[in-house]
């Protein structure tokens, strides 16, 4: 099989056909920020945090396959601003009280915000009213923190073979459901399901495991998300200029 050559931010890389841009970049130590992407699941392209420019056109790097000779822009000022905007919108759209969240320090949304140097979201907070479903003996869902990435739904369907989760509503009314109207305890969810681990934020949590890791030893306490893939960028707090 012949190799494909493409450039990412001016750097020429070679990869196999059939890879996505995100996978090809990762092979060569280039980190493209992502949130809804989870290795092992089919590419989804939901969150658009991995948006790159391919020959000048915006595409989700997690779904877009590589092609011979394409020119990809990843780490540019414009794309950083777009991604930052998405993360800030996710923060104001839900109710993310980091100081009291069990997932703080291990949360991918928070880690992306840290990496991008977001000191506060610049959009007005929406403070939606959402529910907590603690009916299940071992797992709870806090919809306040749900970012609708569908990682739980896709994992449950494709890996656990259960389809415990689904979505209802469109646009701002979209929400995660357990068979509309049902509670988590009525579903087929087991605490051992992979879907329980799939949540990037603190929306799906295993009970009785909170705050087990001391501050300083959690996933993203010392090094930014993505630093396993590349060397960390210089991070500073920036001024809260309007988008």
């Amino acid at each position: 099989m012949s190799e494909i050559t493409l450039t990412i931010d001016g750097r020429e890389i070679t990869t196999q056909p059939g890879r996505t841009i995100l996978e090809a970049a990762e092979e060569h130590g280039i980190y493209i920020p992502r949130l809804c992407h989870l290795p092992g699941l089919k590419p989804f392209g939901g969150c658009r945090v991995c948006t790159v420019l391919v020959n000048g056109r915006s595409e989700a790097a997690c779904t877009q396959p590589v092609a011979q000779g394409i020119v990809v822009e990843n780490d540019t000022e414009q794309l950083r601003a777009w991604r930052r905007n998405i993360i800030e919108m996710l923060f104001v759209e839900g109710n993310h009280f980091c100081p009291s969240c069990e997932k703080s320090g291990d949360c991918e949304l928070q880690a992306l915000a840290y990496r991008m140097g977001i000191s506060a979201p610049r959009h007005p907070f929406l403070w939606p009213r959402r529910e907590v479903d603690a009916s299940h003996p071992d797992v709870l869902i806090d919809h306040n923190r749900c970012i609708l990435c569908a990682r739980c739904a896709r994992t449950s369907r494709d890996i656990d073979g259960k389809e415990v989760f689904g979505f209802v509503g469109r646009g701002p009314a979209r929400k995660l459901t357990i068979n509309p109207g049902a509670r988590l305890v009525d579903s087929a969810l087991d605490v051992t399901d992979q879907a329980v681990n799939a949540c990037p934020v603190g929306a799906i949590l295993r009970k009785r495991g909170a705050y087990a890791t001391p501050v300083g030893r959690r996933h993203y306490d010392r090094a930014p998300i993505g630093s396993g893939i590349e060397t960390p960028a210089e991070l500073t707090i920036d001024r809260g200029d309007q988008p």
């Binding site: 980091c98 969240c101 140097g117 707090i237």
Partner: peptide, 13 residues
């Protein structure tokens, strides 16, 4: 001077 905080000092919790 410009504010430059190392990564470890930016925390929400």
């Amino acid at each position: 001077a410009p504010i430059e905080l190392p990564y470890q000092l930016i925390k929400y919790d």
